Simulated scan of single mutants.
Amino acid sequence: MMPNLPRASVTQCAAIIACGGLVLYPTEGVWGLGCDPSNEAAVRRLLALKQRDEAKGLILIAGATAQLDAWVDWSSLDVEQHARALRTWPGFHTWIVPCRQATPTWIRGRHDSVAVRVTAHPAVATMCSQFGKAIVSTSANLATKPSPLHLREVSAEILAGVDAICEGETLGYTSPSQIHDAASGAIVR
C-alpha cells in the first residue's frame, strides 16, 4: 500500500521533528521512524506506534559525532574502543556505548548504554544537521514484523501514524545496520 502523505523535503522533515512530529525516512538499509529523542511525548508516541517495549531502548542516528555527545559517555571507553567506532563512521555500523547519566529511560531502556550511529545516508545526515542534533532511528515496522527495505513494505498502521515521509530512497543495503558492543567490539546484531 502506498502512502497518502506527500513526500516532504529533508528541511521540512527536520522542522517536523523539531515540532515533536514523527517522520518516516530512508536509512542505509531500511525505512526508519525518527523523532526528537529529547521530546518524551514524541518518543512515547513512536514506541506506541511500533508497539515496542520501552525497556529495549532505541538507536540514535546523527550526521556528525558531536551530535551524539549529549547522549554518550565517551570517557568510559579507552582510546582504541573509541577509535574503533569512529573508524566505521559515517557508515552502516551502530555502536552500543555507555550513556550519560542524564540519558532518559525512554531512550536507553533498561540499559546503562545507548546505541548510536553516524549515518552514511546523505539525506539523513542533512536532516540531523538541519535539526541540530541526533534523532531517534528505529525501523518503520511493528515490533513483531520484518524491517521494511522499501517504502511499499511499510504497513498501513505505521503510515497512518507518521506526520511526514522524507524524500529519498535507502542506500540499498538489505538489512538494518550492524550493531556492535563498543567495549568488546562484538557484533550484537
Rank of each mutant, 00 (worst) to 15 (best):
L159P: 01
P3Y: 02
A14H: 07
Q130N: 13
Q81M: 04
I107Y: 06
F92K: 04
P6N: 07
V30K: 05
G63D: 03
D69G: 06
A48G: 10
R84M: 02
R52E: 11
W106P: 00
A15V: 09
S129M: 05
E80C: 03
V43K: 06
L49F: 04
S38M: 14
L47D: 05
L68P: 00
S113L: 06
A85E: 04
V23M: 00
Q12W: 02
G63H: 11
K56C: 12
I16P: 00
P26D: 10
V118P: 00
A143R: 09
E169S: 13
K56L: 05
T88W: 02
E153P: 07
V10I: 13
A134F: 09
A64M: 04
A134M: 13
H93L: 13
L68F: 13
L60R: 00
A8V: 01
S137V: 04
T105R: 13
S76Y: 07
G185I: 15
S113C: 14
W31V: 02
L24C: 10
P90D: 12
L58H: 05
L68H: 08
T126M: 13
H180Y: 15
W95V: 07
D73W: 04
R44N: 15
I165R: 03
K145T: 10
I96Q: 09
W106D: 02
E54K: 14
L68Q: 05
A64D: 12
K56T: 04
A123E: 05
R84P: 01
G21H: 02
Q101E: 15
P3E: 03
D78S: 11
V114F: 05
V72N: 05
A42V: 15
T94G: 10
A123I: 04
G32H: 01
